[in-house]
């Protein structure tokens, strides 16, 4: 077990300007003191609703978001600074896959140019080696080598998402951050892309940070899961910890809201959901501080951390 990236008390705040002089009067706490570790070759899920800050964290780790405070440590250096990232060729090792495969691929470039771009940024290959590499990559993602002369719009959503994956793995990265990679896809295509991501993860030993609002997909894809609410982690644990033994009221509420394919117990599930919703409304103040934000997390087992009021003893995260 080796730690690949350590995120320490990461904060990303956006200023809100208002008033007559347009001064900064408040901040949006998109990410507000988040700490976790990513180990080599493991899969992590980051779950939250819209506005929870989950995408902000992903973007901050790849360097697409300016970090307000805190550290992102990679090989002992703080890569939250752009100069450090450039110097270390950090983005050779950390790549990202986006939700919207059409708008994240430049429509005026061929697939060849799209995949070649990160390779050219970080490696010095001659023309024939570069072409060889691109053919290999297309083969890995299950596309024929003819694809490299085509443009993004000539492909279906699932194929484009695989091209995005080919681009992301072209530099042999150690970590891939996937921000809602399948939420725009139909079920049958989603299955294809998910299988594929699992396969390259296993075969290339890449760490994955899988950001999604879909708890079903996250459970399928990742071994370790963090639940995020309003810029903070409320619960962190293994798949079993989160799905079988959820502790935080918000996690319970999120899990109960997932539609169940269980026709016979439909009414019972609905009643259960209503009960948890009532509990959430009633006990909310016990789980959140005076500002309505989650408390720091405490360790309850070796792998399981939960946000609880500070009275309880234990290491905080």
């Amino acid at each position: 077990m080796s730690v690949l990236i350590e995120i320490k008390d990461l904060k990303v705040h956006y200023p809100i300007r208002s008033g007559f002089w347009n001064r900064v009067t408040d901040h949006v706490y998109a990410a507000d003191g988040v700490s976790f570790e990513i180990e080599a070759g493991k899969t992590y899920g980051l779950v939250g609703e819209s506005g929870s800050g989950k995408s902000t964290i992903g973007k901050a780790i790849v360097g697409l978001e300016k970090v307000t405070s805190g550290q992102i440590l990679y090989k002992g250096q703080d890569v939250s600074k752009a100069s450090v990232r450039r110097h270390m060729k950090y983005n050779k090792d950390v790549q990202m896959i986006f939700q919207d495969s059409l708008s994240s691929l430049n429509p005026k470039k061929t697939i060849y140019e799209i995949i070649a771009e990160p390779i050219r940024n970080f490696e010095n290959l001659d023309k024939s080696a570069e072409k060889q590499r691109i053919i290999e990559l297309l083969e890995i993602v299950g596309l024929s080598s003819n694809a490299m002369y085509q443009y993004p719009h000539q492909f279906s959503g699932g194929q484009r998402q695989r091209i995005g994956i080919a681009r992301a793995i072209s530099t042999n990265p150690k970590l891939i951050i996937a921000d809602e990679p399948v939420s725009a896809l139909d079920l049958s295509i989603q299955a294809q892309v998910l299988n594929f991501m699992k396969k390259i993860q296993r075969e290339l030993g890449i760490s994955f940070l899988f950001i999604s609002h879909d708890l079903g997909v996250v459970r399928h894809m990742t071994e370790n899961i963090a639940i995020m609410h309003l810029g903070r982690f409320v619960e962190l644990g293994t798949r079993e910890d989160i799905y079988n033994n959820p502790q935080h009221i918000y996690t319970k509420r999120l899990l109960s809201a997932i539609p169940q394919i269980d026709i016979a117990n439909r009414d019972a599930n609905k009643a259960q959901r209503a009960a948890i919703e009532a509990q959430y409304q009633a006990e909310r103040q016990n789980f959140y501080d005076a500002d309505g934000l989650a408390y720091p997390m405490h360790k309850i087992t070796a792998s399981h951390w939960v946000s609880t009021p500070p009275t309880e003893k234990g290491a905080t995260k």
Binding site: L187, I189, Q190, R239
Partner: peptide, 23 residues
Amino acid sequence: RSLLRAMPTLDTENDDLYVIEGS
């Protein structure tokens, strides 16, 4: 049957999902 099989569920945690061939 294919659609239901392509859905990630409790039992698919460590398996591959069913992929409907073609498009």
